[in-house]
Design a protein around this nucleic acid. Structure first.
Lengths: 244, 244
DNA sequence: CGAGCCGTTGAGGGGATTCAAGCTCAGTGG
DNA sequence: CCACTGAGCTTGAATCCCCTCAACGGCTCG
């Protein structure tokens, strides 16, 4: 059978998902960046692209997961309730990240995954990855890369965000959020209680520290839930903080 | 070619490592538990079984890793230095755990890995896993399972050990160490400064809390660096702590 | 316009840190 | 044999940072 040229294939209206995938701005960094166009063709029908609002839940802890998700835009937080009954946010995922990997292992999800901002996802059924993985070595390597990435982020969270004085924790969080800034250079500024759940601080302390930084010109608050950072002052403040 | 019976194969003195592997007490839970005896035969020559003392380093952050390790006995800690220059322990690994997974991806190690107790390891060259992985689907699944396990442990660390009052953090740490208890029911009791690096507390605070728990009969300190836990009192103390 | 959510600010108290001193114990050498 | 030493652990006292409790303001929405 003759194979169509890739350009035509990806514009074929009989493969509506083809256009989404080929146009996907995160394809280079996304899971299926490891696939060639021919492999890509076969998967279009299986992928949905749900859209969520801030606060919506992607999946729930304990749920028997049958899919993973690529984050095309927006930020996802992973949270769980501690043995002491407190809500804690243990990690964030952003554009290009692959979440819900545990579904591949037929394990229930290990956390609640919640949208922090409006969210564009690609829903990838577990079986699809299993099928492709048998033929395509690179795909499995790519999956393992994502696992390692998540692990490193979780460890960095322990080291950088869970320790030190309140001001330093907030500074480090802002530096992390800076990496998820949108095209206009705006960051998502979490609600104070979410900050608290991330940094292990109270709402009041978060509010005080953020307000202080606003007065110092480190950030400019732009409702709703956004802010513009002054990178230079932020870096300077972090420097000062770490020196002490 | 005729295959030898497994029992003979594994006792074959021409495969000295065969005896170690077949007798390995962690084989059921170890990486190569996914392999059959025939596959197992081929790998013996490639595996070394180093022995380390407490304080020795398994590998260093940034090192270009060419091997992963199975922990046959003992406890390993993963530590890194924060941007603020403080040493932080971000995770532990114990018997049956597979460490240094990032070597599979040709990435440098993400942390320092240090022996907390005398340590028996199996050193598994990266190339060996790559070779076996191409033939054996289950092996790769098993590797991914380890990755997920490490991720869940890191997230649990954030949620349970990095938050709450000092007494609760120490209680939770003891409950974690309880899972790594040896045959006599003794746990590894970290030095106070290591506890501090795990729980984000000062040496003095750790000392005060541990001493208090010793007076309460929750634990009995047995130098060097060991202790016997009173499981019931520990659980009761944790219960009380979480209720508040 | 009142209700409710979210953020902010103040005052007071508490738990961890800081600073400091003394303790135990193993190793060393006179 | 024992004084000496240093590392690790413990304890005390003072300080400080964050938490708790409380009140208030801005905003959205019914």
């Amino acid at each position: 059978m003759l194979m169509k040229p890739i350009a035509l294939l990806l514009q074929d209206p009989s493969h509506p998902q083809a256009q989404v995938c080929s146009a996907c701005e995160v394809r280079r960094s996304a899971l299926f960046g490891a696939l060639d166009a021919v492999s890509l063709e076969r998967i279009h029908d299986d992928i949905a692209a749900p859209h969520l609002e801030a606060g919506d839940r992607v999946y729930a802890l304990g749920q028997a997961g049958t899919a993973l998700y690529t984050v095309r835009s927006g930020i996802v937080r992973f949270e769980r309730v501690t043995a002491a009954g407190e809500r804690r946010i243990v990690r964030l995922a952003g554009r290009g990240d692959l979440i819900g990997l545990e579904a591949l292992l037929h394990k229930p999800y290990a956390d609640d995954a919640v949208a922090c901002t409006p969210l564009q996802l690609c829903r990838i059924p577990r079986l699809l990855v299993g099928r492709l993985g048998q033929e395509n070595e690179d795909l499995l390597t790519e999956v393992m890369r994502r696992w390692q990435r998540a692990l490193e982020q979780a460890e960095a969270w322990v080291a950088e965000l869970a320790a030190g004085p309140a001001r330093r924790r907030v500074l480090r969080l802002l530096m992390l959020l800076e990496h998820h800034a949108d095209l206009q250079g705006l960051i998502w500024l979490p609600r104070r209680d979410d900050m608290g759940a991330m940094l292990n601080l109270t709402v009041e302390t978060c509010s005080r520290v953020v307000s202080q930084m606003r007065r110092e010109g480190i950030l400019e608050i732009l409702p709703p839930s956004q802010a513009r950072l002054d990178g230079a002052r932020l870096a300077a403040a972090a420097q000062t903080q770490d020196a002490s």
